[in-house]
């Protein structure tokens, strides 16, 4: 059990039911400060629900969520964002009719200090803050690699760029914890590796702790320091990547061994030949 003061995010006995359906059951999650922590598991295992509980998109039925020792479960979503938690979404939820830079500027909202009066009067402070915000936004767009496309409407951007934009927007809130929901979905191996490098830079250059849900095993193995495996709403296993890869229960529930994977591939080829 890691030292609690090392933990940025400490989830204890989290539970969520929707009427009669138990989506998440007695889940413990310990995310160390400054690390990259992955959550994996089959579909419907409750991973995104857990995310939603942490960001208060839904209210947990039971359990506690602590961010740096402070309880954040049940708080209003914007307060959780103020505490330093930001996320991206499984199906990209950008502001489609705003440009890339405007999307990121919305993320800056929390950290901007202009008041109503400043805005109506357009005084010096307004101009200073706006210029600084735009500069920061541009830097973030460059950081994620879509700098040249700042003026493009979000819905006009290619899918891969949209995902990066979402990350930039989340980073604009200057989070301590960045939660990514299937960031590598729909990416080819090259893009996946670029994502890995981006996450590394987020952790190392920006000092942000990353918690991600992912199905792409290559990406997960390449970047994670610890992995939590979900199955049917509960935690199946938790540990370092190598341990998880060789854990029998995880293999049975989700991964499959190399030998079983190879056997499956042989069977498919045989069927294809006789068809």
């Amino acid at each position: 059990m890691p030292d609690p003061s090392d933990l940025l995010l400490d989830v204890r006995a989290l539970g969520k039911r929707f009427g009669g359906l138990v989506a998440v059951r007695e889940v413990d999650l310990a995310v160390r400060r400054g690390s990259v922590h992955a959550i994996i598991g089959p579909n419907g295992a409750g991973k995104t629900t857990a995310f939603n509980c942490i960001t208060s998109f839904v209210k947990p039925t039971s359990g506690r969520i602590l961010l740096d020792g402070e309880r954040i479960d049940g708080l209003a979503p914007h307060r959780i964002a103020a505490h330093g938690v930001a996320r991206t979404y499984q199906n990209v939820r950008l502001f489609a009719n705003m440009t890339a830079i405007e999307n990121v500027l919305v993320g800056e909202h929390l950290r901007l200090r202009t008041s109503f009066l400043d805005i109506v009067l357009r005084n010096g402070r307004f101009h200073r803050e706006e210029t600084a915000a735009r500069a920061r936004a541009r830097d973030l767009l460059d950081f994620v690699g879509i700098g040249p496309r700042a003026g493009l409407l979000a819905r006009a951007m290619p899918y891969g760029d949209q995902r990066r934009l979402e990350i930039a927007r989340a980073l604009a809130t200057r989070p301590r914890l960045l939660m990514l929901d299937e960031p590598a979905a729909g990416m080819n191996p090259a893009e996946g590796m670029a994502l890995v490098r981006l996450i590394e830079r987020i952790r190392d250059d920006l000092g942000v702790t990353v918690l991600l849900i992912e199905h792409h095993m290559r990406v997960v193995m390449a970047i994670s320091e610890r992995i939590t495996v979900f199955d049917r709403g509960a935690v199946l296993a938790e540990g370092a990547p190598n341990d998880i890869q060789n854990d029998d229960r995880v293999i049975a529930a989700y991964l499959g061994t190399r030998s079983t994977q190879e056997a499956h591939a042989v069977k498919l080829r045989a069927e294809a030949r006789t068809a």
Partner: peptide, 26 residues
């Protein structure tokens, strides 16, 4: 002036996707 400021952007964000706007701290 309101429209072209952080308030205006926040309003637009709320209009586009209220839940995401909240998650971004609005």
């Amino acid at each position: 002036r309101l429209q072209h400021s952080r308030i205006g952007r926040a309003w637009l964000a709320i209009r586009e996707d209220e839940d995401v706007a909240q998650a971004l701290g609005i």
